[in-house]
Amino acid sequence: MKVNFLSTVLFFFISCFSTLDAACQLNNSPNGSIKISFINTLNSVPIILDAVNYTNCWNENFTISALKYYISNVQFKTSNKKSIKEKNSYHLIDEENIVSKSFLCTVLPGNYLTLSFLIGVDSIKNVSGAQTDALDPLNSMFWTWNSGYIMFKLEGNSPNSTIVNNKIEYHIGGFAGTNNVLRQVELNLENNKALININSITEIVVQADVGKLWNAVHELKISQTPVCSTPGAPAAGIADNYSKAFTVIKIIN
């Protein structure tokens, strides 16, 4: 009798929850997922904060203590020329925080040709007041003296730096007019074939080569520019450089 009674109550509970589950699944259209992972590298080797001495193309030694940047407005193009945009697409990639270096986008199944994104936070969010999550000013990526996000941040030390404690500090921001440091990156997925299946996760591994910072488009020498922390032409130049850093190195279907 006792068993009977308990099992009745239990059955009641289970049936309640299982009907709920089924309802959830029915309401959703079948989706695939793309996981985008970022690996920050120097000389094709993942960087290590603080511990490793690096040398740039100008033979200047340096260490990196912090590397953070925003990836926003993630978009895919499919083989039938559809453009798929991630909703509320704002991600802060923080070298120190492993979890932050990859994120999942739910997309329709299909054959994906390109991945594009903005390095930085689009101008609208720079003027829209208090935000949360990746855009929370808690993340120390928001200027308090000149409203706007720091789109890219690299801090470290170098004997070639002329400022106090041999610091290097690149806080790249600015979203208006010629000071705009937002850079669009489009990466081809065709060679690697990103085929997204229903209920499976395809991983796109993007490499960000920090070495590009020093000479991809313009010359950046630590001895001349150890610090850049205001919007303007130097910041825009550095943005040109790091916009060349991104390549797809692997797609895992």
Binding site: N126, V127, S128, G129, A130, P137, F142, T144, W145, N146, S147, G148
Partner: peptide, 10 residues
């Protein structure tokens, strides 16, 4: 320098 009242207190 501050473009929105919400972020001024920062």
């Amino acid at each position: 320098g501050i473009n929105n009242i919400e972020v001024q207190p920062l």
